[in-house]
Simulated assay, not measured.
Amino acid sequence: MEHTGQQARRPANDGPKAAARNRAALVTAAREVFSEHGLEAPLSAIARRAGVGQGVLYRHFPDRTAAVAAVLEENVRQIEQAADAEGMTFAGVLGVLTWHLAQSAAFIGLLHAGWAADRSGIRAHALALSARVERALRRHLPHGHRLGAPDDLMLSVAMASAAVTGATHEERERRALAAWRLLGVDVGPVRPYDG
C-alpha cells in the first residue's frame, strides 16, 4: 500500500511534451539573455532563465552555436509565418521583423553575418536564414517600391538593424523605427507574429 502511495506522489513523466516545453522555454530564454548580455553570455544564464538544469540545456543545445541557431530559426520562422498570413502587407512583415530586431541580438548578428564569420558551421546557416528573410519580405514588396533593386532591400534591413542599440527593448524599437523612417519606409505594428 505504501508503495502505491509513493508512486501516486511522483510527478508524471510527460516525455516528449516536457522536452518540447523545455526547448521552447530555452529558445525564449536564449533570445532574452542574448539580447540583454550579447551572444557571449554564459549558457548557464539561459538554463536559469528557462528554469531548467544545465543538463537539459545541453541535451537541446550542445554548444553556443546550437543555441544561437535555434533563436535565429525561431525568428526567421515567425517572419515567414507572418509573410504567409492572409492579408499581410509589406509594412506588416516589416513590423514583425522590427520586433525581432529589437528583441534579439542574435538576429541582428544574422543580418550582419559578422558574428557568424568565425564560428564553425554557423556562417552558411546564417546566410541561408538571411536569404529566407529576404524571400519572405520580397513576397510582399510592392512593385516599384524604393527597395526593389537587387541589393537595396537587405541593405536597408542591415542599416535599420545597425541602429538597434539601447538598454531596453523600447529604446531599441524606437531606434529601429527611426531608422526605417529615415530610409523612407513605412512599418506596421511592431509585434511578434503569434498566428
Score class of each variant (00 low, 15 high):
119 R>M: 10
92 G>M: 01
94 L>C: 04
188 G>H: 02
160 A>Q: 12
28 T>P: 09
93 V>P: 03
11 P>D: 14
18 A>I: 04
72 L>A: 09
17 K>N: 15
82 A>C: 10
107 F>G: 10
50 A>E: 06
58 Y>M: 02
16 P>I: 15
97 L>K: 06
145 H>C: 01
132 R>E: 10
189 P>T: 03
161 S>Y: 05
111 L>F: 02
105 A>D: 15
141 L>F: 04
80 E>S: 11
106 A>S: 04
176 A>V: 11
58 Y>D: 06
1 M>T: 14
53 G>M: 05
180 W>K: 08
83 A>H: 01
156 S>C: 09
154 M>W: 01
84 D>C: 13
191 R>S: 10
77 R>N: 09
84 D>T: 10
179 A>S: 13
163 A>I: 07
173 E>W: 07
29 A>K: 10
162 A>G: 12
131 A>I: 07
77 R>E: 13
80 E>P: 02
91 A>P: 01
118 D>S: 14
25 A>D: 12
82 A>F: 00
156 S>Y: 02
84 D>F: 10
180 W>F: 09
31 R>Q: 14
126 A>L: 06
134 E>A: 06
51 G>E: 12
30 A>S: 11
178 A>F: 09
116 A>K: 00
169 H>E: 12
126 A>W: 03
152 D>G: 01
110 L>N: 07
126 A>K: 01
63 D>M: 03
45 A>Q: 11
112 H>V: 10
6 Q>M: 15
